[in-house]
Amino acid sequence: MGIFDKFKSNKSAQEKARKASDAAEKKLNERTGGKYEDQIDAGQRQAEERLGMKRDRPDQP
């Protein structure tokens, strides 16, 4: 069992990772003035999917 398999089964670790991911997204959007918001969001989604952190998000405008 690899480290990512352990991560996928640990709900508290996933919640911490979600909070960190959201904080990073917010900070990047602040630093870029929202200019690259779509690209940052797409990157965040891809990273979370690769880690097995699928979340139900409404599509953002």
Rank of each mutant, 00 (worst) to 15 (best):
Q46S: 12
E37C: 02
K6Q: 09
E49C: 10
R55Q: 14
A47F: 12
A47K: 11
M53A: 12
G34W: 01
K8H: 03
A13T: 00
L51T: 09
K19G: 01
A42I: 10
T32I: 02
P58I: 14
D56L: 14
A42W: 03
Y36L: 08
N29Y: 01
M1K: 07
A17F: 11
K27Q: 14
Y36M: 09
K16P: 00
R50A: 15
F4N: 13
N10L: 03
D5N: 11
G34M: 02
R31I: 05
D22Y: 02
I40S: 04
G33S: 04
N29S: 05
Q39M: 07
S9P: 02
T32G: 04
A23L: 10
D22G: 01
S21E: 11
D22Q: 07
E15C: 00
K8C: 02
R50D: 13
D59K: 15
K26A: 13
D59C: 04
Q14A: 11
R45H: 13
R57Q: 15
M1F: 06
D38W: 01
R55G: 09
Q46W: 11
K8S: 07
R31P: 00
D5R: 05
S12L: 05
S21M: 10
K8D: 02
A17W: 07
R18D: 09
E15W: 01
R31C: 00
D56V: 14
Q46L: 13
D38Y: 02
G34R: 03
K27S: 12
K26S: 10
R31S: 09
A20L: 06
K27T: 13
S9A: 13
G43W: 04
A24D: 03
E49S: 15
D41A: 10
A47N: 08
R18W: 06
Q44S: 13
D56K: 15
G33Q: 06
F7W: 07
R18N: 12
D38R: 09
E30R: 09
R57E: 15
S9M: 10
A13K: 04
D59S: 15
I40G: 08
K11M: 04
I40N: 03
K8V: 08
K16G: 00
F4E: 12
K19V: 01
A24I: 09
K11S: 05
N10T: 02
E30H: 08
R57F: 13
Q46I: 12
S9D: 13
E30G: 07
K54N: 14
R18Y: 06
R55M: 09
A24M: 11
I3L: 12
A47C: 06
T32D: 07
N29G: 04
G34N: 08
K11L: 03
L51I: 12
K54V: 11
I40Q: 08
K26I: 10
